[in-house]
Design a protein around this nucleic acid. Structure first.
Length: 532
RNA sequence: GGGUUCGUAGCUCAGCCAGGUAGAGUACCGGACUUUUAAUCCGGCUGUCCGGGGUCCGAAUCCCCGCGAACCCGCCA
């Protein structure tokens, strides 16, 4: 077998970047600045998967830079998009804004200038926290300042040809009738209800009538307005089937990833870019959509959306980047319960990178190190970060809920897991603590306590007022049960139910000393009072 | 109708995209420890890698043909 040639750092990102460079070389285009693009939706709460588009495009950008080229990520917010449906949990008054551009709808949360800006800000905030750098481009500004006017013109004068091609490529026939451009109705301010029917190419103006449309199964009445709009100034936007192409040419985009849900649009746009705008379409990579795991109860916040903000409550920035960079195909379901595994996996990569773990396969070692570098956005730390197994932390955090950081740290030092406390470990305890609080919350159990057990419990409370050695306490509990004629098995279960809300648990004597005998006594007496 | 992904231990899945000894967690079995349950620690077992063909010195991995499951598109952006 011939030797495997390792490209760049051996990841799929390097492979993509090198294919992109080969393609550009073949086309003979200028490679002084290679721009990559990511589209940001502005219509709903951004899922962690929405970050994937930008994060992966950014990966290609830094891979290109690693190969010695200049590159830039354009984050384009599609905020002229009309609101088609109200996301779950959002206020009802949004109804009256259906079909209006999301940038002209008030922010339901009241913290941004508009609905659209609120949503894109959430996404950009996520990117900022991950350390992704980008050039932000708003759809509203793009159209308002006429950045796409030449492309719009070319597309509109070829609209017949395009309409036929769309029908041929994807079977959609509406653009044989109407123009692939949606004006914002000057009268009612809505998109989609205004149908563009004639392009006056000399004046670069479009005639439209606000005659209404259907979105999904819903019929939207038009306001009947007869209007004329100037494509260089007035608001309106190209249909998706042609808009990407216009952007690609206008911004000179050479790479854009896409999710498989918009496969058809990309197919049409590639053709429009090549044949109508004479701009060879950017290289693509298709990725799978991220779905929420079914049946998982997430916090009671809006919907069940796995957002980057929520993720960062439990996991580190690196865990998100690892999720998105480890591969581009395959992952379909993602949930917060992936966090512990990703945290460990990152730590393992770190150990490989710093030579603490040796793999038997050299290629795999190179790729693991490469992945580690990408997760650190190609600026890996000089030294490994202190780390404690995340699952262990979650376990400890379930036991210690108050004064958590110092108590868990103390235990870790006792276990010889760490030598001393550090801010990194503190952060990890906080994250694992949130995880323990939100997902491993013990359900309240109504404990059945008969009179005999009650007497035994009271006796135990008295004993607990004197601190003792762990072995003694274990022994004491056992004896209390026996002397009160209770099966030790049953008595232990009652105690576990009271203290841990569980039928089972760690060895009880030392455990009570861990959580504090005073607190244990208090918990038990509270339960007794509550029961009577 | 068009397209994509997935199928690996009893269960949940990693490994596949750049071929090189079949992996983890859990479950199970045994041992240690414990004056109860459990936890913990140590050791062990577990495979038609969906089926069939091809390429290769070598295939879970790449290619082709099937079977099964899920999802996307066939409104719209």
């Amino acid at each position: 077998m011939e030797e495997q040639k390792i490209i760049g750092k051996g990841t799929w990102i390097d492979k993509l970047a090198s294919e992109l460079l080969e393609k550009e070389k073949y086309l003979g285009r200028d490679t002084g600045m290679i721009r990559v693009e990511s589209g940001l939706g502005a219509s709903g709460i951004p899922h962690i998967g929405s970050l994937g588009d930008a994060v992966r495009a950014y990966g290609v950008k830094i891979a290109l830079e690693n190969f010695g080229f200049r590159s830039e990520l354009v984050a384009y917010s599609d905020d002229l998009d009309g609101l088609r449906k109200i996301p779950e949990g959002f206020p009802d008054w949004l109804k009256e804004h259906i079909a209006k551009p999301v940038s002209f709808i008030p922010d339901p949360f009241g913290c941004h200038d508009s609905y659209g800006l609120h949503m894109s800000s959430l996404l950009l905030d996520g990117l900022d926290k991950l350390g992704i750098k980008y050039k932000f481009q708003r759809g509203v500004d793009t159209y308002r300042s006429g950045l796409l006017k030449d492309q719009i013109h070319s597309i509109l004068i070829n609209s017949k040809k395009i309409g036929e091609k769309i029908a041929e490529l994807v079977g959609q026939e509406k653009y044989q009738e109407s123009l692939p451009y949606f004006p914002v109705c000057a009268n009612c301010g809505r998109l989609y209800t205004a149908i563009a029917y004639e392009y006056l190419s000399d004046e670069k103006k479009i005639k439209y009538k606000c005659s209404g449309t259907t979105i999904g199964s819903k019929v939207l009445e038009g306001c009947g307005h007869d209007g004329i709009t100037d494509i260089t100034k007035d608001l309106g936007k190209l249909a998706w089937k042609v808009e990407f192409a216009a952007r690609w040419q206008a911004f000179d985009i050479r790479f854009e990833a896409y999710g498989k849900d918009i496969m058809d649009s990309v197919k049409v746009n590639d053709w429009v870019s090549d044949e109508i705008l004479n701009f060879h379409h950017p290289m693509h990579v298709r990725y799978e959509m991220f779905l929420d795991k079914g049946g998982k109860k997430i916090s009671k916040s809006l919907g069940n959306v796995v957002t980057s903000q929520a993720w960062l409550r439990y996991g580190t920035v690196k865990s998100i980047l690892l999720l998105l960079y480890k591969r581009i195909t395959g992952t379909r379901e993602v949930g917060f319960d992936d966090i512990p595994a990703l945290m460990s996996e990152y730590h393992e990569l770190e150990n490989i990178y710093f030579g603490k773990i040796k793999l038997d396969n050299e290629n795999k070692t190179i790729r693991a190190k490469g992945l580690y570098e990408y997760v650190n956005l190609l600026s890996p730390p000089k030294n490994p970060t202190p780390y404690v197994n995340y699952r262990l932390l979650v376990q400890l955090c379930m036991i210690f809920r108050e004064d958590r950081i110092s108590k868990v740290t103390k235990k870790l030092i006792e276990y010889r897991t760490i030598k001393e406390s550090s801010s990194e470990i503190d952060d990890l305890i906080m994250l694992a603590g949130n995880y323990a609080d939100d997902f491993d919350k013990p359900t309240k159990v109504e404990v059945q306590i008969d009179d005999m057990s009650k007497k035994a419990l009271i006796e135990l409370i008295k004993i607990l007022s004197v601190e003792s050695e762990p072995d003694d306490l274990q022994n004491t509990i056992y004896n209390i049960a026996k002397s009160n004629g209770i099966q030790p098995k049953d008595f232990f279960r009652i105690l576990y139910q009271i203290i841990l809300a569980s039928d089972r648990g760690p060895k009880l004597g030392p455990f009570i000393l861990d959580i504090g005998w005073k607190k244990a006594a208090l918990t038990i007496s509270e339960h007794l009072n509550h029961g009577t």
